[in-house]
């Protein structure tokens, strides 16, 4: 109440000064509203508030003009709100500050939660339980190693030479399927079980394990011969012939079929 009274007097003096050049109530009314509009909400200056009060003290002719701009009731309502906004809640924090802070806080919470969501987002496709993968799916096939120097010993699987070669190839196959995003999780093992004829054909077997649920879909699409074959073929097309040296596998020679 104390504040309100003070501002009233302030306004009155201010207005009386302004009234002199204007000469009539009409002009004063305009000026009053101008003052009101220029007054920012945040400027903490409350003189504009008195427009309404002063105007209501004025002659009736002024009233007509004023009605076009602000009715006294409206102005006084605005005034009251301004007054309330400027009330100090605690320390130096005024109500309008508190409202703005509250808005910022809500906004920040929204942003934070969105960011948090995206950070802790769990990719459904990366969650799987390998222990449920029990249904086997096997593929047999062969490929040719054209760059390899042929020796008689390779024909006997028990020989050291063929064992090392088989080991290397097994590793290569296992790496290739384990690193596959779509097939990696189902891959179980790769075997090289024979080397044949002068052209050096290697026979291999691939074993995949899949879950019992959705097994039909998996069997027909993800773990179909087409997919398993093409992942291998793609890997062979990607290899540089000179880099892989002796271990170079001819992509065209790759054959694969589903083992029933």
């Amino acid at each position: 109440m104390d504040i309100e009274l003070q501002t009233k007097t302030n306004g009155a003096t201010y207005l009386s000064k302004e009234q002199v050049p204007a000469g009539n109530g009409d002009g004063a009314a305009y000026r009053i509203t101008e003052v009101g509009e220029e007054d920012g909400l945040l400027s903490a200056q409350t003189s504009g508030c008195n427009g309404g009060t002063v105007a209501s003290d004025h002659a009736v002719e002024t009233q007509i003009n004023l009605e076009k701009i602000h009715t006294p009731q409206e102005t006084s309502a605005v005034c009251r709100i301004k007054g309330e906004l400027n009330e100090v809640i605690f320390w130096r924090v005024k109500l309008w500050m508190a409202i703005i802070i509250l808005f910022f806080f809500i906004f920040a919470v929204i942003i934070m939660s969105m960011l948090l969501c995206s950070v802790i987002h769990e990719d459904k496709d990366e969650i799987f339980d390998p222990s449920t993968f029990q249904v086997p799916q096997c593929f047999n096939g062969s490929f040719q190693l054209p760059n390899l120097v042929f020796t008689e010993e390779l024909f006997t699987m028990s020989s050291n030479e063929s064992q090392t070669l088989a080991g290397e190839l097994r590793e290569k196959l296992a790496d290739l399927y384990r690193s596959s995003p779509a097939l990696g999780r189902y891959f179980s093992k790769a075997d090289i079980y024979a080397f044949r004829n002068q052209l050096l054909l290697a026979d291999f077997q691939l074993t995949f394990l899949m879950p019992a649920e959705h097994q039909d879909q998996l069997r027909n699409i993800t773990l179909s011969r087409k997919m398993v074959y093409n992942v291998f073929r793609q890997f062979l097309y990607d290899q540089e012939p000179d880099e892989s040296g002796q271990m170079y596998i001819d992509p065209v020679s790759l054959k694969m079929f589903l083992k029933h």
Binding site: C117, S118, D123, D125, A182, M227
Partner: peptide
């Protein structure tokens, strides 16, 4: 979040 498109073919 950044989604991934897991393409089979």
């Amino acid at each position: 979040p950044k989604y991934k498109l897991r393409v089979l073919r």
